[in-house]
Simulated assay, not measured.
Amino acid sequence: MQASSRSTKSHATFEPVSGGRTWVPDAARAIEEQYALFTLVEQAIVDIVRAAAPEAIEQVKETFAHGAKVSGALLGSPSALFHPSFFVWYSDFANAVRDDDWDHFLKILETLPSILERIEKSIERSRKNHAQIGFPVDLLQEPDDSRSAAKRLAQSAENTVAAVNEKAEPVRIVDAPSARLMEQLSKSYALVKSVWPEMADEMAIATRRIVFLDTSQIIGASDGDCLGTIFIGMKETQVVSKLAEEIIHETSHNVLNTLALASPIIENDASERHFSPLRVDLRPVFGIVHQVFVLSRLVEFYRRLKKKEPRFEVQFGDVLTRFTGGVDVVEQYARAAPAGGPLLRSFTQYRAQVVMEACHV
């Protein structure tokens, strides 16, 4: 039996901000939170520069102003906020701050206008794809955005298959999606929209880029350093409903990582490991919360889909079993941070609702 790898790399967190979070944020809430988060990033940069070198403040402000001019109203557009290119840039910025590398810090700031230009071009490609397949997503991979993440995922896949004594295969990025792949994307997005329009809206916000990987050893993945990008193995694109499931799955990781950036979800130490409903290895508690969050959405997707097409009852039963098992683990081990309490309680509430509904069918 061939092992398949799933990888989710969560990003570092900001200081908590006030305000509750719903377990399925609607499009408006997602946009509102992303606006607030960009403001936090900008203010953090200004604060760090002020503390380190007050004379550089004007240079920082000019950089932001120039970036806004170059991209027009880009920063005022919800579709521009927290694009993968921005998160790659921010990751470099955070590393420079962590390493106290002032020269590198200033060089990174100077690249912001070009990053915004890149985002603008990406958004234009997304608009064209929206017109063609109904899904506003960029399918062209930027060399320094997603390729480094793809390499990390390939290494993760190698480690996973090595653990079960299998030989790893090369992982190749699909640079030019075929007409067939574009058609499958169009059908999968239309399927989600037909049964769960709110999720389709969220996919359009939280997933800015899809990277297809030509390998059978990676099912799907996301990476917090290029938040907004999802990675999907080509094997998962053969069946429309399965591709839809994978997009929902990885989009949900992006959503939860975005929420965790603004407010920590749990207080457990990262070294703490427990049983996982989706992985054979023990996982950190935040990883399990991620899995339960994703599974809750897959339960909802298949719950809606089976009402339209009863043949999906099997898939619904499978994700429901995994979800209920995951909720048990979260209830037993997860220690909620203030902002994470409503999220964790919603898992228990949703499980009770869905199980009761299933028992009355």
Rank of each mutant, 00 (worst) to 15 (best):
S7L: 14
S10R: 11
H11V: 05
E15T: 11
G19D: 00
V24I: 03
E32Q: 13
T39P: 00
Q43W: 00
Q43L: 04
I48W: 10
E55M: 07
A56K: 15
Q59D: 08
V60G: 04
T63V: 14
T63F: 09
V70N: 00
V70S: 10
G72A: 12
S85V: 04
F86D: 03
V88F: 03
A96D: 08
W102F: 05
L106Y: 01
I108E: 03
L109A: 00
L109N: 03
L109G: 15
P113G: 08
E117T: 14
R118D: 00
R127A: 14
K128I: 10
G134Y: 12
L140N: 14
E142L: 10
D144S: 09
R152P: 01
E158F: 04
N159L: 08
V161L: 04
K167N: 12
E169G: 01
P170Y: 02
R172V: 03
A176T: 12
A176N: 06
S178Y: 01
R180N: 13
E183G: 10
S188F: 12
K193T: 05
K193H: 11
D201G: 09
A204Q: 10
A206N: 06
R209N: 15
I210V: 07
L213D: 00
A221C: 04
G228R: 09
M234C: 07
V240M: 13
K242T: 05
E246S: 10
I247C: 05
S252N: 10
H253D: 14
N254E: 02
N257C: 07
L261G: 05
E267D: 11
D269Q: 09
D269K: 03
L278R: 06
R279T: 08
P284V: 09
F286M: 14
V294K: 08
R297L: 14
E309P: 00
V314F: 15
D318G: 01
T321E: 07
T324M: 04
V327F: 07
V330D: 01
V330I: 10
V330S: 06
Q332F: 14
A336D: 10
P338E: 03
S346H: 05
Q349N: 05
R351S: 08
A352L: 09
A352H: 02
Q353A: 13
V355C: 01
